[in-house]
C-alpha cells in the first residue's frame, strides 16, 4: 500500500481504503490467492497451489505518530512498513535530498523500531536517510530489509545502499531487493538485465549471496525494462545461470533468503 502523505489529507484513511481494496480483491480471487502473515501461511498457501500476498505499507506517516495506529495496522494483517517514502514524517527522513541524509530517526521513530520488533513486523529502510539506516541497524534486535534498493557503488544514486550499508544489512541477517528501476541500475533509457547482474555480482562480493532478494518495484518505476512484467522474471534466472550463478544461489535470490527473514521476524 503506497501512500503519498504530501497529497493525501489523511494518510491513514487513504491506507485503510487501500487495505479494504486488498481484502476485496483477495475475496474475489480466493481460489488462487490468500493473505500470508507468517512463514507457516506461505508454506500452507504454497501447498494449496495458491499465491501468497503479504500486506505491506510504503510510508510510515500512515501511523500518524501513534503506536496504537501501528498496532492496529498489525491487527489488520500488515507485516512490513517502509519507514519513510520521499517526505519527512514522524518517524524519520528520506534520502531524497542531501539535507536529510545525516538526519537519523526521531525519538518516535526509535519507538517504532522497538514496537515493530516486539510485534514481529519487517522494518523496511528503502527510501530512509543514510543516518536513519544506521539507527535502524543499531536499534533493531531483528533482521531488517531494504525492499527495493541496489548498490550505490554500481550506480551512484541516494536510493541505493553503500558498500558499508550492504555489509551492515548482511550482518543483521536482512536482505535487499534488487530493484528494476532504470535510474537505480545504470545510465540507459531502458532498465537492462546486464545491469541487474552487475549489481548482484557486486552485492554478492560485498555482503554475500544471503543478502540478495528481489524488489522489482513493478508499477512503481519507469515501465521501460527488459523484464516487462513479473511473468518474465525467468529472464533474470536465465541470465544469472549464464553468469555462473548456481541453482541454489538463484533460489536464494528468488525466494530462500526472504523466506529466512520472514521466518526469523514474523
Amino acid at each position: 500500500m503506497w501512500v503519498n502523505i504530501k497529497s493525501k489529507k489523511d494518510p491513514m484513511e487513504n491506507c485503510l481504503e487501500l487495505i479494504d481494496r486488498f481484502y476485496v480483491e483477495l475475496e474475489k480471487n480466493s481460489h488462487s490467492i490468500s493473505i500470508a502473515t507468517n512463514y507457516e501461511d506461505i508454506i500452507k498457501n504454497d501447498d494449496s497451489d495458491k499465491i501468497s500476498a503479504i500486506l505491506t505499507i510504503e510510508e510510515g506517516g500512515t501511523i500518524k505518530g501513534e503506536l496504537y495506529n501501528l498496532r492496529n495496522f498489525y491487527r489488520l494483517g500488515v507485516r512490513a512498513i517502509t519507514l519513510t517514502w520521499n517526505e519527512p514524517n514522524e518517524i524519520g527522513y528520506p534520502n531524497t535530498t542531501s539535507k536529510y541524509r545525516s538526519k537519523g530517526l526521531t525519538k518516535f521513530g526509535q519507538q517504532v523500531v522497538d514496537e515493530m520488533n516486539r510485534l514481529g513486523m519487517l522494518i523496511d529502510v528503502s527510501h530512509l536517510s543514510d543516518e536513519g539506516f544506521y539507527d535502524v541497524a543499531k536499534l533493531s534486535s531483528k533482521p531488517f530489509i531494504a525492499s527495493h534498493s541496489n548498490s550505490r557503488t554500481m550506480k551512484n544514486h541516494p536510493r541505493n545502499l553503500t558498500d558499508d550499508m550492504i555489509k551492515v544489512l548482511s550482518e543483521s541477517g536482512g536482505v535487499m531487493g534488487i530493484c528494476f528501476e532504470r535510474d537505480f541500475l545504470g545510465n540507459t533509457e531502458k532498465a537492462r538485465i546486464e545491469d541487474m547482474i552487475r549489481h548482484i555480482k557486486h552485492i554478492k562480493n560485498i555482503g554475500g549471496i544471503e543478502v540478495i532478494a528481489l524488489g522489482s518495484d513493478f508499477d512503481g518505476s519507469h515501465p521501460n525494462c527488459e523484464i516487462n512484467n513479473i511473468g518474465e522474471i525467468e529472464k533474470l534466472a536465465f541470465a544469472l545461470s549464464d553468469n555462473k550463478f548456481s541453482e541454489d544461489e538463484i533460489d536464494k535470490i528468488f525466494y530462500k533468503n526472504v523466506l529466512r527473514v520472514i521466518k526469523d521476524v514474523l
Binding site: 503506497w2 481494496r21 486488498f22 480483491e25 483477495l26 490467492i33 500470508a36 506461505i42 499465491i51 501468497s52 500476498a53 503479504i54 500486506l55 505491506t56 510504503e58 512490513a80 528503502s126 530489509i145 525492499s147 527495493h148 536482505v175 531487493g177 530493484c179 532478494a213 528481489l214 524488489g215 522489482s216 518495484d217 513493478f218 508499477d219 512503481g220 512484467n229 513479473i230 511473468g231 522474471i233 525467468e234 528468488f254 525466494y255 526472504v258 523466506l259
Partner: peptide, 19 residues
C-alpha cells in the same frame, strides 16, 4: 519467487505469470 516490492496488491508472486 518472492518479490518484496511489487506495488500492486501482491508481495508474493507467481512463477507461472505473477502480475
Amino acid at each position: 519467487p518472492i518479490d518484496m516490492h511489487c506495488d500492486t496488491i501482491l508481495g508474493l508472486i507467481d512463477d507461472k505469470g505473477g502480475l
